[in-house]
């Protein structure tokens, strides 16, 4: 008997404990009949469980002091340059006037990670909790989350470019694609776990296809080439000088890698973005 279609959307909600009781029972029934999803749930559940037990890590106070000192040094140099004075005079004056930035009191260790900027949080429960916390892993994740808080920004949006086309690819393989407008063209973000790994030398190519495109009279612009990683996952960001208003259909083809710039391979997936454009 063939396996049912994989349900990654509900799998994510299951791992994050966001399914209602009824939905949860329904999804667990799906897991009973879908070996692939069951394996994925068990494997990713371990990762989800680890993330759910992460604790913010503390860092030595002298790290903050070092960073502040470096900032102070740069600010002092800027002040000297702006005033036309010399650095030694500026530093002396700041010391005498007591204008140096005060550092955290000894014993009050700063906390890195998002908890340092957001005090209220909803504890994330996990059906897979109870995994032992690995200190090294926690520290690495805390450092990573701190970097992301900076990257996301105070509003948490992390989005700077207007999205023009966004959706799920259909065809032999699926995935998510986002096309955003940049000053220099378009950024194409593609995520998929279904694109098969191609034989060595072959590659995938993203195309922006316009009206009337035909093999004898092509009307398309390449958005770049890529291939999945060794695990079969695709997570790429490409750039293309193309206007989706003129080329609204997005196609992914499997190309032989012959060096011929014309499309030669079969279409693996596509998304028609024409209804998303003004």
């Amino acid at each position: 008997m063939p396996e049912p279609a994989h349900d990654h959307d509900r799998l994510v909600l299951y791992l994050l404990d966001e399914l209602g009781a009824e939905e949860r029972v329904s999804f667990e029934a799906h897991l009973d009949g879908c070996a692939s999803c069951a394996t994925e749930a068990e494997s990713l559940g371990g990762v989800a469980g680890k993330l759910a037990t992460m604790a913010p890590a503390t860092v030595p106070p002298d790290l903050t002091a070092g960073v502040l000192a470096a900032v102070e040094s740069v600010a002092s140099a800027d002040a000297r340059l702006a005033a036309g004075g010399d650095l030694a005079t500026v530093e002396w004056g700041r010391e005498m006037n007591g204008t140096h930035r005060s550092l955290p009191e000894p014993g009050r260790e700063p906390v890195v990670g998002p908890t340092a900027v957001r005090s209220e949080k909803r504890p994330r429960r996990s059906a897979w909790s109870g995994w032992p916390l690995r200190v090294g892993f926690a520290a690495a994740f805390a450092a990573m989350t701190a970097a992301i808080v900076i990257a996301v920004g105070s509003d948490g949006s992390g989005v700077t470019a207007p999205v023009e086309i966004q959706g799920t690819l259909s065809g032999d393989s699926s995935g998510e694609i986002v096309v955003s407008e940049l000053g220099s063209g378009r950024e194409v973000e593609l995520t998929s776990s279904e694109l098969p790994i191609l034989p060595k030398g072959e590659l995938y190519e993203i195309w922006f296809v316009g009206p009337g495109d035909a093999p004898a009279d092509p009307n398309r612009i390449s958005g770049g080439t890529f291939h999945p990683d060794e695990a079969g996952n695709t997570d790429v960001t490409l750039h293309a000088a193309v206007d989706p208003a003129l080329y609204p259909l997005i196609e992914i083809t499997a190309e032989p890698g012959s060096g011929d710039p014309a499309v030669e391979g079969d279409v693996i997936a596509r998304l028609d973005g024409s209804d998303q454009l003004p």
């Binding site: 990654h8 959307d9 799998l11 994510v12 909600l13 994050l16 990713l44 990762v47 989800a48 995520t191």
Partner: peptide
């Protein structure tokens, strides 16, 4: 849907 797909792939990438 994009967020769920992205989360799924993020967990996979984390596992790898």
């Amino acid at each position: 849907g994009t967020v769920k797909t992205r989360t799924f792939h993020a967990l996979r990438a984390m596992r790898e």
